[in-house]
Amino acid sequence: ATNIVGKVKWYNSTKNFGFIEQDNGGKDVFVHKSAVDAAGLHSLEEGQDVIFDLEEKQGKAYAVNLRIK
């Protein structure tokens, strides 16, 4: 899925991951530091509006192509 809109539920910059809540009511999506770095960001803030693509690997969904809304 592409261009999914959501809000950062939480992001832990020490542990380098967090979760994004989808605006469409879907399951929360894992986001890793690598996606944050690829977006040219240092971190994510709770409540921040983002747009992302959804990829699945080994049955787990995660956010890629992250951008600030």
Rank of each mutant, 00 (worst) to 15 (best):
V31A: 03
L41A: 06
G59C: 04
N12L: 13
S34C: 04
V64W: 07
A35W: 06
A1I: 13
D37N: 12
A38G: 14
V31Q: 00
S43Y: 13
D53N: 06
H42L: 12
D49A: 10
E46Y: 13
K15A: 11
A38I: 04
G25T: 14
E56D: 07
I68Q: 08
H32G: 08
K15R: 11
N24S: 13
A39V: 09
G26S: 08
Q48R: 06
A38D: 14
K57G: 15
Y62W: 12
F17M: 10
Q22A: 13
Y11F: 13
G47N: 09
N16I: 02
V64C: 04
S34K: 14
V8I: 12
N12K: 10
G40N: 11
F19C: 03
D28Q: 15
A1P: 08
V36Q: 02
V29S: 05
K33F: 09
D23C: 04
V36P: 01
Q48P: 02
A63Y: 00
G47A: 08
N12C: 04
G25E: 09
G26T: 14
V31R: 00
A39P: 02
G25N: 12
I4R: 08
L41P: 03
A61R: 15
N16D: 05
A39H: 03
K9V: 06
D28A: 09
E55M: 14
T14K: 14
G26L: 06
A1Q: 10
G18K: 00
V64F: 10
N16T: 08
D49I: 14
V5M: 11
V8E: 00
D53C: 03
S34P: 03
K57Y: 11
W10T: 04
L54S: 06
I51K: 13
G40K: 10
N24F: 08
G18H: 01
T2F: 11
K15F: 10
N12A: 12
V36L: 13
R67P: 00
V5Y: 11
I51S: 06
A61K: 15
N3V: 05
D37W: 07
Y62F: 12
V5A: 14
A61C: 04
L66W: 00
F30C: 03
E46V: 15
K60E: 08
D37R: 14
A61H: 12
I68T: 12
E55Y: 08
A63S: 04
L41F: 15
G18T: 01
G26F: 09
F17A: 02
E46A: 11
I4W: 06
G59E: 09
H42Q: 09
K60W: 07
V50W: 02
W10I: 04
L44V: 05
A61W: 13
K15M: 15
D23N: 09
A1Y: 06
N3A: 08
V50C: 04
V64E: 06
G6N: 01
A38E: 15
A35I: 08
E21V: 15
T2I: 12
I68P: 08
L44R: 01
H42C: 05
V50H: 01
A39L: 07
A1E: 07
F52M: 06
E45N: 09
A61F: 14
K33G: 11
N65Y: 09
G47W: 06
N12I: 14
T2R: 15
S34V: 14
A38P: 03
K60G: 12
G18V: 01
V5D: 13
A38Q: 10
D28L: 13
A61D: 13
H42G: 10
F19E: 02
D23F: 14
Q22D: 13
E55A: 15
D37Q: 06
L66R: 00
A35P: 01
R67A: 04
K7F: 09
G40D: 08
H42P: 12
L54C: 04
S34Y: 15
I51V: 08
F30H: 02
Q22H: 12
Q58M: 08
S13K: 11
N12M: 08
D49K: 14
N3L: 06
E56G: 06
A61V: 14
D28F: 08
A35E: 11
V5W: 05
G40F: 08
K57M: 09
F17D: 01
V64R: 11
V29C: 04
Y11H: 01
F19L: 05
D37K: 12
A35R: 05
I20Y: 00
A63R: 00
V50R: 00
V64H: 08
L44P: 02
L66A: 01
V36M: 10
K69D: 10
D28Y: 06
Y11A: 01
E56R: 12
V8L: 05
F52L: 03
E21Y: 10
D23M: 13
F30E: 02
E21S: 15
F30M: 04
K60P: 04
S34D: 06
E46D: 12
F19T: 02
G18S: 01
N3T: 05
I68D: 09
F17S: 03
N16S: 12
Y11D: 01
A1M: 08
I4H: 05
I20G: 00
K7D: 01
E46H: 09
G6I: 01
T2W: 11
V29E: 01
W10G: 02
G6C: 01
E56N: 07
K33S: 11
Q22L: 10
W10S: 05
V29K: 02
D23K: 13
I68N: 07
N24L: 14
T14N: 13
K27N: 10
G59V: 03
N24Q: 09
V64G: 07
D49W: 13
V8N: 01
Y62E: 06
L66Y: 00
I68G: 07
E55V: 11
W10A: 03
G6L: 01
N3K: 11
A38T: 15
E45I: 14
T2A: 14
K9E: 01
G59L: 14
G59D: 08
K69Q: 14
E46L: 05
